[in-house]
Amino acid sequence: MTRHPWLRLVAGRLLAAIPTLWIVVTLSFLLVRLAPGSPFEDEQRLPPAVRANLDRAYGLDQPLPVQYARYLAGLVQGDLGPSLRQRDRRVVDLVREGLPVSLTLGGLALSLSLLLGVSGGLLCAVARGRAVDRWLGRAAVLAVALPPYVTAPLLVLVFAVGTGWLPVAGWEAGRPADLVLPVIALALPTAGGLMRLLRASALDVLDSPAILAARARGLSARRVLLVHVLPPALSPVIAYLGGAAAALLGGSLVVETVFGLPGMGRFLVEGALNRDYTLVLGKVVVYAVLVLLLNLAADLAALGVDPRLRERVYRGVPES
């Protein structure tokens, strides 16, 4: 056990994540296997001998507890098993291909939604009740209300089909133009949500005695906004971001399908449709790890803006 309180916090949280991960994997394993059907069942009728061979090759002929134990044993060594439908591919290799695409897309979308959400939310709070505030507010509601399966085709229609500025779909490594529309489609709902959240929290801070006092000390409006309003206003945003970021980075089923991007989101569709048990489980494991890591990051960021929380970490007071 290390003596540094920060490392101790991180190590403790990572240790605590292991049982959580185990529960997620177990439940998902059971759900996936309890669903009717089999990976080798749907398309063509296989002769029973071939079917039995396949089942044996992938270990599906073993009792469920044995399969479960084998899966866990593989997982501990970082092996997510073979894909049941994509011959000769390991799930780990598929993740290795898909995850960078989803992380790039999600990372850019997260940055864009933070930029739009934070600057828009601050602007609305400062211009409370004025036209800018009203129009941005409406735009935010629209962005939240319209799901990506509506915005994505609309964006394609206007900017790809209509004007021809950007490609309709596709993914070639190193071509940034491919990412513009998917990133926008993915970022809009989160940006809208962030904007509304930040506007509300910034208004609370703006009305507080601390801000009256800061302005009374003669500080410039910019300084008051960036140094005294923004950090405390970010607190609720950070808590929200932990979950939102995982949804963005874990791969969006809709956006990746519409734009034909080979990311993690497509795994779920393909895997679920084909009863590719290991692929679906692989996606769940990756997503769960992302959620746990990003929530830890969000908690660390929350410590960054609240010295009272920091002090509790240093004093070793358990989190409430």
């Binding site: 507080s208 005695p209 601390a210 009256l212 006092a213 800061a214 009374a216 000390r217 140094v227 005294h228 950090p231 405390p232 803006v305 609240d306 010295p307 009272r308």
Partner: peptide
């Protein structure tokens, strides 16, 4: 200006 309550008049962070 000397405000009313230091717990609310100072920025906590």
């Amino acid at each position: 200006f000397v405000p009313q309550d230091p717990q609310t008049a100072l920025s906590a962070h």
